[in-house]
Nucleic acid binder design. Structure first.
Length: 324
DNA sequence: CGCCAGGACTACT
DNA sequence: AGTAGTCATGGC
């Protein structure tokens, strides 16, 4: 079936900039593929594969334009609900902006990030592996690596506008070879020509391949990702940190983008720099203290505050001066 | 060549 | 509880 429908502006509150949201480097899932004015990706609705195309004139009153394509019939309302969830369209941005305006340090981020929303994960496991792979990696390289993982280990789905791959299951990644062939065995030339070998290292995840395998094993046994949904934030944090490759920053990313814990405040190098400048007079503050500060000061808006500060710090040019 | 990328882990005090 | 060294890989 192929359906086309719209999400009208009264159905979501405040501005929406889809290109900014998709391209802001949120580690829930790679950026959606751009095709003309549409962004497109394979999404699972009611466990059925569905190609979603979405377009919207940034920060306008125009409705959001959506085309959905699937073999099996899927209820339109279910597709809409998934899209609303993935792009944070249930979040009340005017209310967030009222909150940000209350703090002179945060007020400048509003105009700069207008329409930026949380970009939520397609599934919990994907958010775990995506966030693990993002650690000590560039956003570009991280995007490439995840797309390689999907191509080599995911399931293939063909649609009229292209071929897409699902994110691989924990079973598949747990059994993926780490490095079937290395340079010592077959030499650099053969390694190049055989770039499609199905091992994790060929996905360019580097030393994180060990974490990916162990994490995939763990979510099949001792850790039930679904169960974390019902935990309070701090218990969820302690639980997710048991997964190898998941430290405080990655854990908070999973809790924010995967589970939607609004309190999560991922502290990375950029947040550390800008929060130190804005709230600690430029002094060095440890990451745990920084995290505690964010949670206590920003409460349920901590996640969005972090998102806005992160984007502001990176793109405004403000940080060049103090990037010692 | 060296340095950095939305850090985590290990091995130390 | 806090602190250096190390970890693949690619871009600049």
């Amino acid at each position: 079936m192929k359906t086309r429908f719209k999400i009208e502006t009264p159905e979501f509150k405040g501005p929406f900039d889809i290109e900014l949201t998709i391209g802001s480097g949120q580690t829930s899932q790679p950026a959606w593929q751009k095709n003309g004015k549409y962004f497109q990706e394979l999404v699972f609705v009611d466990n059925k594969p569905c190609l979603v195309k979405i377009a919207h004139k940034p920060n306008s009153d125009d409705p959001i334009d959506i085309i959905a394509e699937s073999k099996e019939d899927i209820e339109k309302e279910h597709i809409k609900a998934r899209i609303m969830e993935i792009f944070g369209l249930n979040d009340d941005l005017p209310k967030l902006y009222d909150f940000l305006r209350n703090d002179p340090n945060l007020e400048p981020t509003i105009d700069f990030c207008k329409g930026l929303r949380l970009f939520k994960a397609n599934n919990l496991f994907e958010s775990v592996i995506c966030s693990i792979t993002s650690a000590h990696n560039s956003i570009r390289q991280w995007n490439k690596a995840i797309n390689l993982l999907k191509e080599k280990f995911g399931d293939k789905y063909k649609f009229s506008s292209g071929t897409f791959y699902s994110f691989p299951s924990p079973q598949v990644l747990a059994n993926a070879p780490e490095h079937e062939f290395d340079e010592e065995e077959c030499g650099p030339e053969l390694l190049k020509t055989r770039a499609s070998w199905k091992d994790l290292r060929s996905c360019r995840v580097g030393y994180r391949s060990k974490y990916i395998i162990k994490a995939s094993e763990m979510v099949q046994s001792e850790i039930d990702l679904q169960k974390i949904n019902q935990m309070d934030y701090e218990t969820a944090f302690d639980t997710i940190l048991k997964i190898p490759g998941v430290g405080p920053k990655v854990g908070d990313c999973i809790l924010l983008y995967g589970y939607g814990f609004g309190k999560a405040f991922p502290v990375d190098i950029w947040i550390s720099r800008i929060v130190a400048k804005l709230y600690f007079d430029g002094k060095n503050v440890s990451n745990p203290k920084m995290r505690k500060f964010g949670i206590e000061r920003f409460g349920n808006y901590a996640g969005y505050t972090q998102l806005y500060l992160f984007h502001y710090a990176r793109k405004s040019g403000l940080m060049k001066t103090l990037k010692k």
